[in-house]
Simulated assay, not measured.
Amino acid sequence: MINIAENVEHWHGAAQTTKMTHIAITNFEGDTNVIWLKPVSDQEYNAVNKQ
Results as ranks from 00 to 15, higher is better:
8 V>Q: 07
28 F>G: 03
42 D>G: 04
39 P>F: 00
7 N>L: 11
1 M>N: 12
16 Q>N: 14
4 I>R: 13
12 H>T: 09
24 A>G: 06
44 E>Q: 15
17 T>P: 00
29 E>F: 01
21 T>L: 06
6 E>R: 15
14 A>W: 11
35 I>L: 15
24 A>K: 02
45 Y>M: 06
15 A>S: 15
36 W>K: 00
38 K>G: 05
10 H>C: 09
30 G>L: 02
3 N>V: 15
27 N>A: 09
29 E>D: 04
48 V>L: 03
14 A>N: 15
5 A>L: 08
8 V>K: 08
31 D>N: 02
17 T>R: 12
29 E>N: 07
48 V>N: 06
1 M>D: 08
42 D>T: 09
14 A>Q: 15
4 I>H: 12
43 Q>W: 00
43 Q>A: 05
1 M>P: 03
51 Q>L: 13
21 T>G: 04
32 T>C: 03
37 L>E: 04
14 A>C: 15
20 M>C: 09
21 T>K: 06
24 A>H: 08
41 S>F: 15
2 I>Q: 14
7 N>M: 10
28 F>K: 11
11 W>L: 07
5 A>C: 07
33 N>W: 01
10 H>T: 02
2 I>M: 13
18 T>F: 13
48 V>Y: 10
24 A>S: 13
49 N>I: 11
31 D>M: 01
15 A>M: 14
23 I>A: 07
26 T>I: 09
8 V>Y: 04
9 E>M: 04
17 T>I: 12
20 M>G: 12
27 N>T: 06
17 T>S: 15
45 Y>L: 03
20 M>V: 08
12 H>N: 09
8 V>G: 05
27 N>Y: 11
17 T>F: 14
5 A>W: 01
28 F>V: 02
12 H>I: 13
4 I>T: 10
16 Q>H: 13
17 T>L: 11
30 G>A: 01
20 M>I: 10
26 T>L: 14
38 K>D: 03
26 T>S: 10
12 H>A: 04
37 L>C: 01
14 A>T: 14
9 E>W: 02
35 I>S: 14
15 A>R: 14
20 M>Y: 03
49 N>L: 14
3 N>K: 13
28 F>P: 03
47 A>P: 00
30 G>D: 05
4 I>P: 03
43 Q>D: 01
42 D>C: 13
47 A>V: 00
27 N>K: 13
18 T>C: 11
27 N>Q: 13
49 N>E: 05
37 L>A: 01
32 T>A: 06
16 Q>Y: 04
23 I>M: 10
32 T>Y: 05
1 M>V: 09
23 I>R: 11
33 N>I: 03
37 L>W: 02
10 H>L: 10
17 T>E: 15
14 A>E: 11
40 V>D: 00
2 I>E: 12
16 Q>T: 07
